[in-house]
Design a protein around this nucleic acid. Sequence first.
DNA 1: CGTACCCTAGTCAAAGTTGAATAGGAGGGT
DNA 2: ACCCTCCTATTCAACTTTGACTAGGGTACG
Lengths: 213, 213
Amino acid sequence: MSAIRLLVLGAVRQHGRAHGYQVRNDLEYWGAHEWSNAKPGSIYHALKQMAKQGLLHAHEIAPSTAGGPPRTEYEMTGKGTEEFFRLLRESLTVYDQKMDVLSAGVGFIVELKRDEAVALLKERVRGLEEWRAAVTEYYTPEDGPQSLGHIGEIMNLWVGSADFGAEWTRGLIRRIEEGAYTFSGEGDPFVGVLAEGEENPYATGAPHEGDQG
Amino acid sequence: MSAIRLLVLGAVRQHGRAHGYQVRNDLEYWGAHEWSNAKPGSIYHALKQMAKQGLLHAHEIAPSTAGGPPRTEYEMTGKGTEEFFRLLRESLTVYDQKMDVLSAGVGFIVELKRDEAVALLKERVRGLEEWRAAVTEYYTPEDGPQSLGHIGEIMNLWVGSADFGAEWTRGLIRRIEEGAYTFSGEGDPFVGVLAEGEENPYATGAPHEGDQG
DNA sequence: CGTACCCTAGTCAAAGTTGAATAGGAGGGT
DNA sequence: ACCCTCCTATTCAACTTTGACTAGGGTACG
């Protein structure tokens, strides 16, 4: 899976209704342009595609007062909300080494119930442990690991990476079980989007990199 | 960057001349289908694209004795060899969190001189340290890291991941500096491809997964 | 008062990725 | 003789990603 759909659905969801540029700004606010493939083209494509598939409902809107071309606003549908939670759950349990997917999942984790979050993360740890075992077993040749030559370093990298991932996840599970953070149904929800016109305190001050030339 | 071009160029290079199916088998031999996006479609696409760009030279060949459609064989060009080394150097120094690129780079690292390999890996460590510093500085709010809420966990993940990556790289540098492995110009080169007709000792025994139905 | 730059907002072509489909021949059973 | 399955070898349509481009309006500045 890629992170883009989860990120875009999450952004639209927190607004209720949003246009592409707003989503783009949210992702920049979250720093997502630095750790995920959330380029403008991908965002607009994801919005259109998900509208076509009935996950979002598109509204054609007159140009904004701020100028520029006419905008399209997108609204969550029931199917979209379902898909959001499906992707969220998947992002927290898959144990491939894609940090962008995991980061997106952690960003939205408080939209779940505390119990479910813990259960999903425990499944993640289980998956990592299994994968580690499979790697060490499958790629250990009979005549010792030295016979692999420098290729053994790749195995070493995978195993270490699995161990780090599992350890980090165990730490997160511990903190959640001890009561950290506010999950769904436990009080004021965490709001992580910019209101219309609000300034981004994390903005770089530079113009949108990559736009124009 | 993606790992596919480096993998395909590396495979063709070790054969001198190879057709798509041969490359595909090499990548399976290397286990690359498990840790990279090296699906048949991507491999053939990469071969065609790189032939179009002059990195490989294509030869139309009659069908093999083993049956099947006519094959196309690809041969390295000078430009292709240059590109191979460019990608190899890049794969070892970029410090994004893509394990497939790094794995491919480590797989071919012995094609470099020992000194250069060490220098590239040291640059990688420098990059990781800089990135770690940037993350901790940029995303540490004035009123303590707690104010970020669960979003702080993402930062925690990035920092931990950078630390793990740097530590693993330092270990590899140490072993290489102590004389491990055989690098370019130091003796019999490591050969990591299957000869025509040779069996893959790591084969799963299953038919090519995903082929047909 | 014009012009250069920046912000809002989105489109598009080209390239890459995915998963399934195609097609010829070999081998083995009935 | 016939069919079924496997192996060789590649193609294709659909989808995603990338980076550059388009275009309107505001604003600071000489």
